[in-house]
Write a protein that binds this DNA or RNA. Structure first.
Lengths: 154, 154
DNA sequence: ATCATTTAAATCGCATACGAGTTAATCGTG
DNA sequence: CACGATTAACTCGTATGCGATTTAAATGAT
Protein backbone atom coordinates (compact mmCIF):
# COMPACT_ATOMS: atom_id res chain seq x y z
CA UNK A 1 0.00 0.00 0.00
CA UNK A 2 2.89 2.37 -0.71
CA UNK A 3 3.64 2.72 2.98
CA UNK A 4 6.36 5.32 3.54
CA UNK A 5 9.74 3.66 4.00
CA UNK A 6 12.10 4.72 6.77
CA UNK A 7 13.63 7.64 4.99
CA UNK A 8 16.61 9.23 6.69
CA UNK A 9 14.33 11.29 8.89
CA UNK A 10 16.93 13.68 10.24
CA UNK A 11 16.13 13.77 13.93
CA UNK A 12 13.22 11.50 14.64
CA UNK A 13 14.69 10.79 18.04
CA UNK A 14 15.47 14.38 18.97
CA UNK A 15 12.87 16.91 17.85
CA UNK A 16 14.75 19.63 19.72
CA UNK A 17 17.49 19.47 17.12
CA UNK A 18 14.99 20.43 14.44
CA UNK A 19 14.65 24.05 15.48
CA UNK A 20 16.52 25.95 12.79
CA UNK A 21 16.78 29.02 15.00
CA UNK A 22 18.53 26.88 17.58
CA UNK A 23 20.97 25.44 15.06
CA UNK A 24 21.90 28.94 13.99
CA UNK A 25 22.22 30.05 17.60
CA UNK A 26 24.38 27.15 18.73
CA UNK A 27 26.55 27.19 15.62
CA UNK A 28 27.24 30.83 16.39
CA UNK A 29 28.32 29.87 19.89
CA UNK A 30 30.55 27.16 18.45
CA UNK A 31 32.22 29.66 16.09
CA UNK A 32 32.71 32.04 18.99
CA UNK A 33 34.37 29.36 21.10
CA UNK A 34 36.67 28.32 18.28
CA UNK A 35 37.72 31.90 17.51
CA UNK A 36 38.17 32.98 21.11
CA UNK A 37 41.49 31.30 21.93
CA UNK A 38 42.88 32.22 18.52
CA UNK A 39 41.98 35.89 19.00
CA UNK A 40 43.10 36.02 22.62
CA UNK A 41 46.66 36.30 21.35
CA UNK A 42 45.79 39.60 19.73
CA UNK A 43 43.80 40.86 22.69
CA UNK A 44 40.59 40.79 20.68
CA UNK A 45 37.16 39.39 21.36
CA UNK A 46 35.15 37.81 18.56
CA UNK A 47 32.93 40.86 18.14
CA UNK A 48 35.85 43.28 18.31
CA UNK A 49 37.53 41.25 15.59
CA UNK A 50 34.43 41.39 13.41
CA UNK A 51 34.23 45.14 13.94
CA UNK A 52 37.84 45.63 12.84
CA UNK A 53 37.22 43.48 9.76
CA UNK A 54 34.15 45.54 8.90
CA UNK A 55 36.18 48.73 9.20
CA UNK A 56 39.03 47.30 7.14
CA UNK A 57 36.79 46.12 4.33
CA UNK A 58 34.27 48.95 4.27
CA UNK A 59 36.42 51.81 5.44
CA UNK A 60 35.56 54.61 7.86
CA UNK A 61 31.99 54.42 9.08
CA UNK A 62 29.68 56.29 11.42
CA UNK A 63 28.42 54.51 14.51
CA UNK A 64 25.11 53.88 12.76
CA UNK A 65 26.76 52.55 9.64
CA UNK A 66 28.97 50.24 11.64
CA UNK A 67 25.84 49.05 13.40
CA UNK A 68 24.27 48.27 10.05
CA UNK A 69 27.42 46.47 8.95
CA UNK A 70 27.37 44.29 12.07
CA UNK A 71 23.58 44.11 12.45
CA UNK A 72 23.84 45.74 15.86
CA UNK A 73 22.11 48.60 17.64
CA UNK A 74 23.96 51.76 18.57
CA UNK A 75 23.60 50.78 22.22
CA UNK A 76 25.89 47.85 21.50
CA UNK A 77 28.23 49.60 19.09
CA UNK A 78 29.00 52.58 21.32
CA UNK A 79 30.64 50.63 24.18
CA UNK A 80 32.27 48.29 21.67
CA UNK A 81 34.12 51.04 19.84
CA UNK A 82 35.00 52.78 23.09
CA UNK A 83 36.84 49.65 24.17
CA UNK A 84 38.53 49.41 20.79
CA UNK A 85 39.52 53.05 21.09
CA UNK A 86 40.93 52.41 24.55
CA UNK A 87 42.96 49.57 23.02
CA UNK A 88 44.24 51.92 20.33
CA UNK A 89 42.85 50.01 17.37
CA UNK A 90 40.26 52.56 16.23
CA UNK A 91 39.69 56.30 16.43
CA UNK A 92 36.42 58.08 17.13
CA UNK A 93 35.97 61.59 15.89
CA UNK A 94 33.01 63.92 15.70
CA UNK A 95 31.97 65.05 12.26
CA UNK A 96 32.62 68.77 12.03
CA UNK A 97 29.70 69.26 9.66
CA UNK A 98 27.22 67.43 11.87
CA UNK A 99 28.25 67.25 15.49
CA UNK A 100 25.81 64.41 16.13
CA UNK A 101 27.67 61.82 14.10
CA UNK A 102 30.81 60.01 15.21
CA UNK A 103 33.12 58.60 12.56
CA UNK A 104 35.06 55.46 13.36
CA UNK A 105 38.21 54.36 11.57
CA UNK A 106 41.04 51.88 11.97
CA UNK A 107 44.34 53.09 13.38
CA UNK A 108 47.65 51.86 12.03
CA UNK A 109 47.83 49.67 15.08
CA UNK A 110 44.40 48.24 14.23
CA UNK A 111 45.52 47.51 10.69
CA UNK A 112 48.71 45.90 11.95
CA UNK A 113 46.81 43.61 14.31
CA UNK A 114 44.46 42.56 11.52
CA UNK A 115 47.49 41.80 9.40
CA UNK A 116 48.98 39.64 12.15
CA UNK A 117 45.66 37.84 12.57
CA UNK A 118 45.26 37.34 8.84
CA UNK A 119 45.51 33.56 9.09
CA UNK A 120 42.87 33.13 11.78
CA UNK A 121 39.78 32.78 9.58
CA UNK A 122 41.61 30.35 7.35
CA UNK A 123 42.49 28.22 10.36
CA UNK A 124 38.86 28.20 11.43
CA UNK A 125 37.59 27.34 7.96
CA UNK A 126 40.07 24.49 7.71
CA UNK A 127 38.94 23.30 11.13
CA UNK A 128 35.48 22.77 9.69
CA UNK A 129 36.86 20.12 7.37
CA UNK A 130 34.28 21.17 4.83
CA UNK A 131 34.93 22.02 1.16
CA UNK A 132 35.03 25.79 0.57
CA UNK A 133 32.35 25.73 -2.10
CA UNK A 134 29.98 24.07 0.34
CA UNK A 135 30.76 26.69 2.98
CA UNK A 136 30.14 29.36 0.36
CA UNK A 137 26.77 27.84 -0.49
CA UNK A 138 25.83 27.73 3.17
CA UNK A 139 26.88 31.35 3.51
CA UNK A 140 24.59 32.40 0.66
CA UNK A 141 21.64 30.53 2.13
CA UNK A 142 22.18 32.16 5.49
CA UNK A 143 22.45 35.62 3.97
CA UNK A 144 19.16 35.05 2.14
CA UNK A 145 17.49 33.84 5.34
CA UNK A 146 18.90 36.77 7.30
CA UNK A 147 17.53 39.18 4.72
CA UNK A 148 14.04 37.71 5.15
CA UNK A 149 14.24 37.84 8.93
CA UNK A 150 15.48 41.43 8.97
CA UNK A 151 12.62 42.70 6.83
CA UNK A 152 10.14 41.01 9.19
CA UNK A 153 11.51 42.73 12.30
CA UNK A 154 11.75 46.15 10.59
CA UNK B 1 38.41 31.99 -26.06
CA UNK B 2 36.07 30.54 -23.38
CA UNK B 3 36.67 33.56 -21.18
CA UNK B 4 34.80 33.20 -17.90
CA UNK B 5 31.56 35.18 -18.07
CA UNK B 6 30.40 37.37 -15.22
CA UNK B 7 29.00 34.62 -13.09
CA UNK B 8 26.89 35.72 -10.15
CA UNK B 9 29.92 36.18 -7.94
CA UNK B 10 28.09 36.45 -4.66
CA UNK B 11 29.76 39.41 -3.03
CA UNK B 12 32.43 40.77 -5.26
CA UNK B 13 31.65 44.25 -3.99
CA UNK B 14 31.47 43.36 -0.30
CA UNK B 15 34.06 40.86 0.89
CA UNK B 16 32.89 41.36 4.46
CA UNK B 17 29.69 39.49 3.65
CA UNK B 18 31.72 36.41 2.76
CA UNK B 19 32.64 35.53 6.33
CA UNK B 20 30.53 32.49 7.07
CA UNK B 21 31.03 32.94 10.79
CA UNK B 22 29.58 36.42 10.47
CA UNK B 23 26.56 35.22 8.53
CA UNK B 24 25.85 32.68 11.25
CA UNK B 25 26.36 35.32 13.92
CA UNK B 26 24.13 37.94 12.35
CA UNK B 27 21.42 35.47 11.37
CA UNK B 28 21.32 34.44 15.02
CA UNK B 29 20.84 38.08 16.00
CA UNK B 30 18.05 38.39 13.42
CA UNK B 31 16.27 35.34 14.82
CA UNK B 32 16.61 36.74 18.32
CA UNK B 33 15.10 40.05 17.29
CA UNK B 34 12.19 38.37 15.54
CA UNK B 35 11.44 36.08 18.47
CA UNK B 36 11.81 38.72 21.18
CA UNK B 37 8.53 40.63 20.72
CA UNK B 38 6.63 37.37 20.21
CA UNK B 39 8.01 35.89 23.44
CA UNK B 40 7.61 39.09 25.43
CA UNK B 41 3.93 38.27 25.76
CA UNK B 42 4.83 35.14 27.70
CA UNK B 43 7.48 36.86 29.80
CA UNK B 44 10.23 34.80 28.19
CA UNK B 45 13.55 35.69 26.64
CA UNK B 46 14.79 33.81 23.60
CA UNK B 47 17.22 31.72 25.62
CA UNK B 48 14.68 31.01 28.35
CA UNK B 49 12.30 29.83 25.65
CA UNK B 50 14.94 27.52 24.17
CA UNK B 51 15.65 26.13 27.63
CA UNK B 52 11.98 25.35 28.22
CA UNK B 53 11.74 23.66 24.82
CA UNK B 54 14.81 21.56 25.61
CA UNK B 55 13.26 20.49 28.90
CA UNK B 56 9.91 19.72 27.27
CA UNK B 57 11.43 17.61 24.51
CA UNK B 58 14.21 15.89 26.44
CA UNK B 59 12.64 15.76 29.88
CA UNK B 60 14.27 16.38 33.25
CA UNK B 61 17.98 17.16 32.97
CA UNK B 62 20.86 18.00 35.23
CA UNK B 63 22.47 21.42 34.88
CA UNK B 64 25.30 19.85 32.90
CA UNK B 65 22.96 17.97 30.60
CA UNK B 66 20.93 21.08 29.96
CA UNK B 67 24.17 22.86 29.16
CA UNK B 68 24.98 20.15 26.62
CA UNK B 69 21.49 20.42 25.16
CA UNK B 70 21.89 24.17 24.73
CA UNK B 71 25.66 24.17 24.00
CA UNK B 72 26.22 26.38 27.04
CA UNK B 73 28.58 26.33 30.00
CA UNK B 74 27.27 25.77 33.50
CA UNK B 75 28.21 29.35 34.34
CA UNK B 76 25.52 30.44 31.89
CA UNK B 77 22.99 27.76 32.73
CA UNK B 78 22.97 28.31 36.49
CA UNK B 79 21.72 31.91 36.45
CA UNK B 80 19.38 31.09 33.57
CA UNK B 81 17.53 28.34 35.45
CA UNK B 82 17.48 30.40 38.63
CA UNK B 83 15.55 33.08 36.77
CA UNK B 84 13.22 30.45 35.32
CA UNK B 85 12.71 29.02 38.80
CA UNK B 86 11.91 32.50 40.12
CA UNK B 87 9.33 32.80 37.33
CA UNK B 88 7.84 29.45 38.37
CA UNK B 89 8.42 27.68 35.07
CA UNK B 90 11.03 25.13 36.25
CA UNK B 91 12.03 23.42 39.47
CA UNK B 92 15.56 22.80 40.74
CA UNK B 93 16.15 19.96 43.14
CA UNK B 94 19.28 18.33 44.46
CA UNK B 95 19.78 14.69 43.59
CA UNK B 96 19.52 12.71 46.83
CA UNK B 97 21.98 10.11 45.55
CA UNK B 98 24.60 12.66 44.57
CA UNK B 99 24.26 15.97 46.31
CA UNK B 100 26.43 17.64 43.72
CA UNK B 101 23.95 17.40 40.88
CA UNK B 102 20.90 19.58 40.43
CA UNK B 103 17.99 18.23 38.40
CA UNK B 104 15.88 20.67 36.43
CA UNK B 105 12.34 19.99 35.24
CA UNK B 106 9.39 21.87 33.84
CA UNK B 107 6.57 22.86 36.16
CA UNK B 108 2.93 22.68 35.08
CA UNK B 109 3.11 26.41 34.64
CA UNK B 110 6.13 25.99 32.36
CA UNK B 111 4.28 23.40 30.29
CA UNK B 112 1.23 25.63 30.10
CA UNK B 113 3.26 28.58 28.86
CA UNK B 114 4.91 26.43 26.20
CA UNK B 115 1.46 25.30 25.13
CA UNK B 116 0.30 28.91 24.84
CA UNK B 117 3.42 29.78 22.84
CA UNK B 118 3.04 26.76 20.59
CA UNK B 119 2.40 28.83 17.50
CA UNK B 120 5.45 31.10 17.86
CA UNK B 121 8.03 29.00 15.95
CA UNK B 122 5.52 28.48 13.15
CA UNK B 123 5.00 32.22 12.89
CA UNK B 124 8.73 32.75 12.67
CA UNK B 125 9.22 30.04 10.08
CA UNK B 126 6.43 31.48 7.99
CA UNK B 127 8.06 34.89 8.32
CA UNK B 128 11.09 33.51 6.53
CA UNK B 129 9.00 32.96 3.42
CA UNK B 130 11.16 29.94 2.66
CA UNK B 131 9.92 26.44 1.82
CA UNK B 132 10.14 24.10 4.83
CA UNK B 133 12.23 21.52 3.02
CA UNK B 134 14.82 24.18 2.26
CA UNK B 135 14.87 25.25 5.91
CA UNK B 136 15.25 21.63 6.89
CA UNK B 137 18.20 21.24 4.52
CA UNK B 138 19.82 24.35 5.94
CA UNK B 139 19.28 23.00 9.44
CA UNK B 140 21.05 19.76 8.59
CA UNK B 141 24.01 21.61 7.09
CA UNK B 142 24.32 23.78 10.17
CA UNK B 143 24.16 20.82 12.51
CA UNK B 144 26.94 19.14 10.54
CA UNK B 145 29.04 22.31 10.66
CA UNK B 146 28.40 22.75 14.37
CA UNK B 147 29.50 19.18 15.01
CA UNK B 148 32.81 19.87 13.26
CA UNK B 149 33.36 23.10 15.16
CA UNK B 150 32.57 21.53 18.52
CA UNK B 151 35.08 18.74 18.08
CA UNK B 152 37.77 21.31 17.26
CA UNK B 153 37.21 23.33 20.41
CA UNK B 154 37.07 20.22 22.63
C1' DA C 1 13.88 83.46 13.44
C1' DT C 2 11.36 80.22 16.67
C1' DC C 3 10.09 76.08 18.35
C1' DA C 4 8.33 71.37 17.65
C1' DT C 5 10.16 67.42 15.31
C1' DT C 6 13.57 64.46 14.00
C1' DT C 7 17.97 62.29 14.29
C1' DA C 8 22.69 60.27 16.07
C1' DA C 9 24.90 58.74 19.72
C1' DA C 10 25.10 57.66 24.34
C1' DT C 11 23.13 55.89 28.76
C1' DC C 12 20.72 52.60 31.63
C1' DG C 13 18.80 48.17 33.18
C1' DC C 14 18.51 43.50 32.28
C1' DA C 15 19.84 39.07 30.35
C1' DT C 16 23.07 36.41 28.12
C1' DA C 17 27.90 34.18 27.44
C1' DC C 18 32.44 32.56 28.84
C1' DG C 19 36.83 31.46 31.44
C1' DA C 20 38.85 31.16 35.77
C1' DG C 21 38.42 30.09 40.20
C1' DT C 22 35.61 28.27 44.37
C1' DT C 23 32.96 25.03 47.12
C1' DA C 24 31.21 20.84 48.36
C1' DA C 25 30.45 16.09 47.41
C1' DT C 26 32.11 11.81 45.40
C1' DC C 27 35.58 8.72 43.71
C1' DG C 28 39.79 6.10 43.57
C1' DT C 29 43.81 4.04 45.14
C1' DG C 30 46.35 2.35 48.67
C1' DC D 1 39.22 4.27 55.67
C1' DA D 2 42.12 7.99 54.58
C1' DC D 3 43.06 11.50 51.48
C1' DG D 4 44.37 13.30 47.05
C1' DA D 5 41.99 13.71 42.65
C1' DT D 6 37.92 14.44 40.30
C1' DT D 7 33.45 16.27 39.51
C1' DA D 8 29.01 19.30 39.55
C1' DA D 9 27.36 23.43 40.35
C1' DC D 10 28.19 27.96 41.55
C1' DT D 11 30.51 32.65 41.79
C1' DC D 12 32.89 36.42 39.78
C1' DG D 13 34.63 39.65 36.30
C1' DT D 14 34.33 41.12 31.62
C1' DA D 15 32.07 41.65 27.21
C1' DT D 16 28.19 41.34 24.53
C1' DG D 17 23.22 42.41 23.09
C1' DC D 18 18.81 44.94 23.20
C1' DG D 19 14.83 48.13 24.30
C1' DA D 20 13.73 52.33 26.36
C1' DT D 21 15.15 56.63 27.45
C1' DT D 22 18.10 60.69 27.27
C1' DT D 23 21.01 64.29 25.35
C1' DA D 24 22.47 67.27 22.02
C1' DA D 25 22.40 68.75 17.36
C1' DA D 26 20.12 69.51 12.99
C1' DT D 27 15.79 70.10 10.45
C1' DG D 28 11.49 72.13 9.14
C1' DA D 29 7.18 74.47 9.11
C1' DT D 30 5.16 78.70 9.94
Amino acid sequence: MSKKPDLPQPSATDPFADFLCFSVYSTGLAFNRLYKPLLDRYGLTYLQYLALIALALRGEQTVSELGESLFLESSTVTPLIKRLEAAGTVTRRRDTRDERVVRVSLTDRGKAILEEARCVPLEVMEATGTPPEQLQLLNEQLKALRAKLVTKSD
